[in-house]
Design a binder for these strands. Sequence first.
DNA 1: GATGCGTGGTA
DNA 2: TTACCAAGCAT
Length: 428
Amino acid sequence: MARRGGSAGPVLLAAWLVVLPAVWAACSRDGRPSLWGAVPVFALLLAEGAERVVARVFFAPVLPERLSFVITSSVKTPPARSLLDWYDRHRRVLPWRSGPGQTADPYAVWLSEIMLQQTTVKAVGPYYHRFLEKFPTVQALAAADRDDVLSAWAGLGYYSRARNLHACAQKVVELGGFPNTVEGLLTLPGIGAYTAAAVAAIAFGVPVVPVDGNVERITSRLFAIEEPLPASRKKLAALASGLNADKEAQKRPSDFAQALFDLGASLCSPRSPACGLCPWVAVCAAHKAGIAATLPRRAPKAVKPVRYGAHFLVIDAAGQVLLRKRPEKGLLAAMTELPGTPWRTEPWSTEEALIHAPVQTEWQDCGMVKHVFTHFTLQVTVYAARISRFSNQAVQEGFLAPATGVDALSLPSLMLKCIKRGMKTLAT
DNA sequence: GATGCGTGGTA
DNA sequence: TTACCAAGCAT
């Protein structure tokens, strides 16, 4: 437990384990435990927040569910009413969010949740509208060609989401609709613990707390958890699951979940939280300790390795470029790319790279394009050339597309950068 | 539990 | 420029 003083938590907890039974016994008649003896015990539990936090953090995760509930339900929760009042005044208006009193559309909620995984609200907006227009219902999405779905997703990143989206839509249509429970939602492709809880709460009013990055941050601050992520993830989830314990939250599961998102996005932000405006400032342990802005702590990240590759932009007299499709699995799976070398840790000499060129011609070196993936940085040397026409052999492993239309359509951002670089060189 | 998987915005 | 990181999931 992340208290200043370090080991005080377990010691105090041990003290309570002695004190509580003693109080119970003292308040019971004839030395036998009675219901009345439980009253002062509960009063003590309710009065002392810190020990309940210790109990939740240390014991709740390892106890059977029934016992765990007894402990976690006794943990003092921040007042949902304050948060909901704040939300009613300051809630963001978002395209996928239904107005006050309106019923949420499960399809819209699910689609937005998938798009919002590790992706900012701002980036999602245009894609969300485009998808609703192209695929107005889950039936339309299920019936669409997978490549059309991938196309519509191009540029948004994490492309397995698009493949799972399509597969999930088909499964939902088979089922006759979205499951309305966390367990049911968890069986669908692309839906994990967070998304299942989010859809259940927002679309179906199930009283669960979806634990995303926002909620982890809020929780780590509320309870001043100093243990770094990702090791602290289980503790944070256990603590977060109790945030909606009181009646006010139970009555409005959808609003409560989204209120946490809005709190995390606007006030309880990563770098400089606006604690002065926060509805929970009075119950925030990190604020009390003056460490809110430093939480959650994170384990140091491994350094990103650099990989190298080369890609080729070749245009014929008709203005067509040669493209190909990436393998079904792995990085940028099933997406379109320029022909090129594999990506490896050693730089490619020109002679080496040209072995992988799609045609034999006079190539112009267009310089390097740098692209940062989650776990490595890629340096791509771009080569460009104009030829009169493509041989059948050159087209065999790819396909042709008009250069003018390619620029904005259905390509990963890395490839857009490469094409832009190549075109610039060819134009000079 | 660690790793692989994109992209764009911000300080 | 670098570093961080955003409504995570699958393996």
